[in-house]
Write a protein that binds this DNA or RNA. Structure first.
Length: 179
DNA sequence: AAAGAGATGGTCT
DNA sequence: GACCATCTCTTTT
C-alpha cells in the first residue's frame, strides 16, 4: 500500500452507533529516510505506531491543537506512513456539520486537522487497525474507481520540500483541497 | 484575494 | 527553549 492507493478509498468511523465517513482525496507520504518525516530520527514514544505494523493508525498532536492521522504503510519497523490530508464527507453529514459548526461544506474536512475533527479521530486512536473488520475506524475499498491524481510538493514542512509526495484527487480541485 | 499573526502544548535538543 | 506534517480570525490590498 502506497500513498496514491489510498485515494478514493472510504475512511469510516463508527462509534456509539454513529457512523461518519469520507472519501480520501488528498494524502502525503513520509518515510524513514525523509528529513520531513517524524520517523527520520528513529523510534520514539510518540512515533511508535509509525514503526509498527502496516494498516494501523499513527495519530499525533499538531501545533498543540489539532490531531493528524496517518495510515502506516511500511512493514513492521520501517517507519513509513501516509498522512490523510483531506476527505470529502459521505456519511453522517449532519454529525460532521455539527462538529464543524459554522464552516461551509467545502471546509468540513479539507485539511488534516479538520479531517480529524470532522470524523472524530483523536489521539486515543493512535495504533488501532484500520484493516480489521471489528475496528471502529476503517479504510474501505467500496469499489469506487481510483480518481485521476495530481502530484506535488508537500505542505507545512521545512525539510524535504523537494520530494513531491503529495497526492490529490483531481476532481476535488481546485481550491477544495487546500486552504 | 492575499497576507499576517495568535493560539497552544507535546516532543526533542 | 526551539520547533513544529495546522487552523482560524483579522488586517491589508
Amino acid at each position: 500500500m502506497v500513498a496514491p492507493d489510498l485515494l478514493g478509498k472510504l475512511l469510516t468511523v463508527e462509534r456509539d452507533g454513529v457512523r461518519v465517513s469520507g472519501r480520501v482525496v488528498e494524502t502525503e507520504a513520509y518515510t524513514r529516510s525523509d528529513p520531513a518525516s517524524h520517523s527520520f530520527n528513529g523510534p520514539t514514544a510518540r512515533n511508535a505506531a509509525m514503526f509498527g505494523l502496516p494498516g494501523r493508525l499513527y495519530v499525533y498532536l499538531s501545533y498543540g491543537i489539532h490531531c493528524c492521522a496517518n495510515v502506516v504503510t511500511g512493514s513492521d519497523g520501517d517507519g513509513q506512513a501516509v498522512l490523510l490530508r483531506a476527505v470529502v464527507p459521505i456519511d453522517g453529514l449532519d454529525v460532521i456539520r455539527s462538529r464543524r459548526r459554522g464552516r461551509p461544506d467545502r471546509e468540513l474536512a479539507n485539511g488534516p486537522g479538520k479531517l480529524c475533527e470532522a470524523l472524530g479521530i483523536t489521539l486515543a486512536d493512535d495504533g488501532i487497525s484500520v484493516a480489521d473488520a471489528g475496528s471502529p475506524i476503517r479504510i474501505v475499498d467500496d469499489g469506487t474507481a481510483p480518481p485521476e491524481t495530481i502530484v506535488g510538493a508537500r505542505v507545512g514542512i521545512t525539510r524535504g520540500v523537494d520530494t513531491p509526495w503529495r497526492f490529490a484527487a483531481l476532481h476535488a480541485l481546485p481550491g477544495r483541497v487546500d486552504d
